[in-house]
Simulated scan of single mutants.
Amino acid sequence: MWKYLALTTAIAASPALSQDKAFTLQAPVELSETGFLKHLLPRFSLKTGIRITVQDGAADAAFGTDGTPVFRQDATVWFLARTESAFTDAFADWLASDVGKRTIEAFAPDGTPMFSADVGAKVEPRAVALSGDAQLGERISLQQCGRCHVVNDTNRMNAIGSSPSFGLLRTFPDWQERFETFFLLKPHPAFTQVEDVTDPFAAHLPSPIAPIEVTLEEIEAITAFVGSIMPSDLGAPIQTQ
């Protein structure tokens, strides 16, 4: 009797007869030939107990050009497309985790990492096409923005030190978008009115300071003025030992 119970328990616990924690993965030849998958997949399986079988043709998941970006190889971003399942979801989550990212970047067959977990889109500065009146923009900037920001040397001693100067803001890759939409960026909505664009302040939420009131033409002029100034020189990067 006891032998029968022990045998029954062993059969029930057998991996071959229990639910198989596994899925299939398709990968292009150029990725497989790097040896990266032999580095990556066993480490995932060791961590999760989920086995991945690489195969040609249709599979439960695939590395390629569709899906979610998961790692970068030089200028190429590799994506993971997958059917919805607990196992493929676990793989995607692991790739995006700190452990997964470290595993991706630890693959360095010649001593130099071949892949990067940084798949953030690179921000390319868009072409600056400015048609506003820069002289008008300078005047409006001093009148409306100079109470907080250093606009130029004439108000250097009157601005708030914690507010970034126009020269500093000019160093940002997205400076043009910031100025064109400044009225949407905190803290500006609380005290800025753009003619025919923003709603009036709510009766119970008046502007905490003398409001800034501008038109779209004046915002265009301010942006043109900022485009005409030199970005601040922030100096060389700090060197660390």
Rank of each mutant, 00 (worst) to 15 (best):
E218I: 01
A117D: 11
A6H: 13
A86I: 03
T223W: 09
R147N: 14
I50P: 02
L205N: 07
I140P: 08
E213A: 11
F172P: 00
R102P: 00
P69Y: 05
F115R: 04
F172M: 07
G57A: 12
F79T: 01
D66V: 05
P28K: 01
L234N: 15
I52Y: 04
R170E: 03
A16G: 03
L46K: 04
A106F: 05
A86D: 08
R72I: 11
L17M: 07
T181M: 02
S131R: 04
H204Q: 06
F115E: 07
V197Q: 00
A96W: 00
D110E: 08
W78T: 03
S228N: 15
A221Q: 10
S14N: 11
E84I: 05
S232I: 04
P189T: 08
A59E: 06
H149R: 13
Q55I: 10
G235F: 03
G49H: 13
V99H: 07
W78Y: 07
S141N: 12
T192D: 13
A203K: 07
I209M: 12
A62S: 14
T88R: 05
E84V: 12
L40A: 13
I104H: 11
T240A: 13
F91Q: 02
A117Y: 03
F183L: 05
L95C: 01
M1T: 09
V226K: 08
K3P: 01
L25P: 02
A27R: 06
L40K: 01
Q143W: 04
T83W: 02
A202L: 14
R51D: 07
F79R: 11
T154A: 08
T76S: 12
Q73M: 10
S131L: 12
S228D: 06
T171K: 03
N158C: 00
V119S: 00
A236N: 09
E138T: 09
D89G: 05
M230Q: 12
R126M: 01
A27D: 09
A22L: 11
P206R: 02
D74R: 14
I212F: 03
M157A: 14
I238V: 12
K47I: 03
L169K: 07
F225E: 04
M230H: 15
V151C: 15
V197E: 06
S232R: 14
F107N: 04
L25A: 06
E217L: 14
L41K: 07
G35Q: 02
E138H: 15
I212V: 15
V119N: 02
A58C: 01
T48F: 06
A90W: 03
H149F: 09
G137N: 06
L168P: 00
T24E: 02
Y4S: 13
N158M: 14
W78G: 08
F79W: 12
R72F: 00
L130N: 09
K101G: 05
M1G: 05
F44S: 01
G167M: 14
D20A: 14
D153V: 13
L184R: 15
E177P: 00
F91W: 12
T34D: 00
A106Y: 06
P173D: 10
R156T: 01
K21E: 11
R51Y: 05
T9S: 15
V226A: 13
D89E: 10
A202C: 00
